[in-house]
């Protein structure tokens, strides 16, 4: 309900232009966002929201537990560790680019970069690290990028999302654009991200159970049975766009980075579970 009200405010703000928009307050948004899900799923422990559909559907959870006996992302974890530890041609390492050598920091991404005024995702930071060390950027949807983020996420398991919005009007603006992207209807089917993952959370869409938006990015990267492979957040965003018959944006498009920033901030306090598996 709160979110619907939020949506109404957004629409009112956008279409009428006359009503004075309330000053953006991400923390107020976050509390409202989380309480919507905590109220909708009163029996789900808060830390479980990082497990997506498996947090809210018992039969699905049972199959997941079977799969997790030997998770299909394990080869990617090994590949990720190897890639992460291998030196660049200049002798430097990924660990030189990250706080704490890259260990246990996934929950702090995306970040706002005060130099460029842009949102930097973990995947983007990995490629920036490569480029600054004279290497080519990695493809963004699957493969080694997914393996490296799997390895880095695993070292953050159990650490709650801790996304910061610094006191910089550009950071707040990026957050607001991400929020707008999330609630705006688009594509031929007229779906917003929120249509499925807020109102529809926990419902069936044919054979699938729609994951709650709260904590929805905590499990990335994921091995999806549908893909038969690993995929990054970009892969999920572009496929979500395509499935709702919207035009998919390029991986790491500003709008995707900003909606990731918004969603991750909304999930502050929800622990990282990645890498994950999904149907």
């Amino acid at each position: 309900m709160i979110v619907r009200r939020l949506l109404a405010v957004l629409i009112a703000g956008a279409s009428l232009g006359a009503a004075p928009a309330p000053a953006p307050n991400p923390e107020t948004d976050r509390v409202a966002f989380q309480s919507y899900f905590f109220t909708k799923f009163p029996n789900v422990k808060h830390e479980e929201f990082g497990n997506g559909p498996y947090a809210v559907n018992a039969p699905m959870r049972k199959q997941w537990e079977e799969i997790m006996q030997f998770p299909p992302y394990e080869p990617a974890l090994d590949e990720g560790r190897e890639a992460f530890e291998a030196p660049f041609a200049n002798g430097r390492h990924y660990s030189d680019c990250f706080d704490n050598g890259g260990d246990g920091i996934r929950q702090t991404y995306p970040r706002f970069d005060t130099k460029t005024g842009e949102i930097i995702t973990l995947d983007g930071a990995i490629n920036a690290c490569r480029v600054s060390n004279g290497e080519k950027p990695l493809p963004l949807q699957t493969g080694v990028m997914a393996s490296i983020t799997a390895f880095m996420s695993e070292s953050s398991r159990g650490k709650p999302f801790d996304i910061k919005i610094p006191a910089d009007p550009r950071a707040l603006a990026a957050y607001e654009r991400g929020k707008e992207f999330f609630y705006a209807r688009k594509g031929q089917l007229g779906f917003a991200c929120a249509s499925c993952h807020v109102q529809g959370a926990g419902e069936r869409l044919r054979g699938d159970i729609l994951a709650p938006a709260l904590g929805i990015l905590a499990a990335f990267p994921i091995y999806r049975s549908d893909w038969g492979a690993m995929g990054t957040i970009d892969r999920r965003f572009t496929s979500c766009s395509a499935q709702t018959r919207a035009v998919p944006l390029p991986a790491q498009a500003a709008a995707y980075r900003e909606v990731e920033y918004f969603l991750s901030y909304m999930s502050n306090g929800i622990p990282i579970t990645g890498p994950g598996t999904r149907p």
């Binding site: 006996q69 030997f70 299909p72 080869p75 049975s225 038969g228």
Partner: peptide, 8 residues
């Protein structure tokens, strides 16, 4: 048998 097969 599924891709990347598993057996126990």
């Amino acid at each position: 048998v599924s891709k990347d097969p598993y057996v126990k």
